[in-house]
Design a protein around this nucleic acid. Structure first.
Lengths: 233, 233
DNA sequence: GAGTGGTCTAGACCACGCC
DNA sequence: GCGTGGTCTAGACCACTCC
C-alpha cells in the first residue's frame, strides 16, 4: 500500500460499498454529491466519479443527472460469464481435448435457422456438426450454421486440427451477438453422441452472432450431463 | 451529436473496435500507445485511456504496462447476466406473480449445506421452501437456507406478502457470492410442484452469498421446463 | 433555472515489467 | 533503465432532468 492509494478510486469504491452494505446509507437514500464526497475524501472529483461509476456498474447505486446518486432499492446483481473456446475450457479442467467432425456440408438451411438470422432460405450455408471430447468422454455436441457470404475464407478451412468455434473466434470477429441458456432433455441422437441416456438433462447454449447487420453464425451447444457454468458475483 | 462527441471516448472506442473487427490491427498485434493515439485522435491521453480500458474489459485487447496494448488472440467474450428478483422477472414477462410458502422452519441443516457454507452443522438455520407462480402456472421452486446469525431480523419477517429472495436482496446486502447454472432432471417432488413430468429437464441456479466471511444464504432455484436465460454479448 | 453527473484537458507522478 | 499503462489533479464546459 503506497501513500497514493489512500485516496485511490478503489479505496473510495470500497468505502462507498461498505456504507451501503452496513446500512450507513439506506436503500433509496440519496448519497452526497461528487463535489462533497471529493471534499470528504480529500481528492479530486474525477476520482470520486470513477469510484461511483464502478459502484453503479455493480448495480448498488443508481445515478441520474440532477437527481443525484441513490442507493438502489433492488440491487440487481450482475453476473459476468466468460464464454471460452471449448478447447481451452476442456484443457483448463485438466483434460485432453479432441474433436470429431460429424458433418461439414454446404446446404440450404431449414426455416428455423433462416428465420432467426433474417436470411433467405435459398442461400446455402455451411453446416458443421462437431463432437468435442474431454479425454475420452464426450463433452459437447455442437451444431453450427455459418453464413458463407459473411466469411468466404471459411470455405477453404480444414477443421481437422482447429475447430470451427476457435477458427471463427480468431478469424470472424463479430460486433454483436445474443446468447440463451436453457435445459433440454437429450434427444435420441444427442443421447447417443454424448453417451447419455435418452431424456437426460442437457445444458444448452444457443448463440447467434452478427457483424454489423450481417448474420455470421448460429450455433447450438449441447453439453454432456453434469456440465455446469460457474461464476462469481 | 455535439462537437464534443467527435473525440469522445465512445467514438475512440468504436474506432478501435472497428480496426480490430476489420483487421486493420491483426490478432496479436501491438497497437499504438496511448500518447500516439491521443495525438492521432486529437484528444487527451486520459480520453484514449478510458476508451482502451473499455475495449480491454470487452476482451478484445490485452493491456500490460511496458508491454503495451495487444489485440487479443482469443477474444474471450463476456456475457453479463442480470439476476433479477423473481417477482420482477415474472412481472416483466407480463404475468401476475404470486408465491406459496411450502415450508419455513428453523432446523439443523444437512451436511451438504454446512459444508458449502463452511458452517458447523450444529447451528440451526432457517429453511424456506417456496413455489413461485406466473399467472397460475408454477414458475420456480426455491429451496433456501438462511444463516440466522447473519441476519437476526429475518426471524420476525412474515413472508406472505414479500418473498424471501426479495426481502434478502433489500435487507441483507452481501459482499460476494457465487452462482452456478446447470441442468437437472426433475425429481419426483420437483415434477409434482412444477407440474412437469418426472425427469423433465429443469434449469437450475445454485447461488451462495457471503457478507465478508460470514455466509448469508444458500439457495437452489429450479425453474419450470421451458425457462431460458437470455442476454446480449 | 439550477443542481447534478458526464466528459474532456493538460499535466504530473507512479507502478509495473521487459530489457 | 526506461517505456508503457494506471491513476490523480484542478479546472472547465456540457447534458440532462427535476423543479
Amino acid at each position: 500500500m503506497t501513500l497514493s492509494e489512500i485516496n485511490s478510486w478503489q479505496t473510495i469504491k470500497a468505502e462507498v460499498m461498505r456504507r451501503i452494505v452496513e446500512r450507513v446509507w439506506l436503500p433509496g437514500d440519496q448519497i452526497p454529491n461528487e463535489v462533497d464526497l471529493a471534499e470528504e475524501f480529500g481528492c479530486a472529483r474525477a476520482t470520486v466519479n470513477r469510484a461511483l461509476r464502478e459502484v453503479a456498474e455493480a448495480g448498488l447505486v443508481e445515478r441520474r443527472r440532477k437527481a443525484g446518486t441513490r442507493v438502489a432499492l433492488n440491487p440487481t446483481r450482475k453476473a459476468t460469464l466468460e464464454i471460452p473456446i471449448t478447447r481451452l475450457e476442456v484443457e483448463q479442467r485438466g483434460w485432453r481435448w479432441r474433436h470429431v467432425i460429424l458433418e461439414r456440408e454446404e446446404t440450404l438451411p431449414p426455416a428455423v435457422v433462416t428465420t432467426r438470422l433474417g436470411l433467405s432460405d435459398k442461400i446455402p450455408m455451411l453446416h458443421v456438426r462437431t463432437l468435442h471430447y474431454a479425454d475420452n468422454s464426450p463433452f459437447l455436441y455442437e451444431d453450427r450454421w455459418v453464413n458463407i457470404s459473411a466469411i468466404e475464407a471459411i470455405r477453404s478451412v480444414n477443421f481437422q486440427s482447429i475447430d470451427a468455434n476457435e477458427w471463427l473466434v480468431q478469424n470472424a470477429p463479430f460486433t454483436r451477438g445474443d446468447i440463451t441458456f436453457s435445459a433440454a432433455n437429450a434427444t435420441e441422437l444427442e443421447a447417443e453422441l454424448l453417451e447419455a441416456k435418452k431424456g437426460a438433462a442437457i445444458f444448452v447454449i444457443d448463440r447467434t452472432t452478427w457483424n454489423g447487420d450481417i448474420p455470421v453464425t448460429l450455433v447450438r451447444l449441447a453439453y454432456a450431463p453434469g456440465y455446469r457454468v460457474h461464476t462469481e458475483l
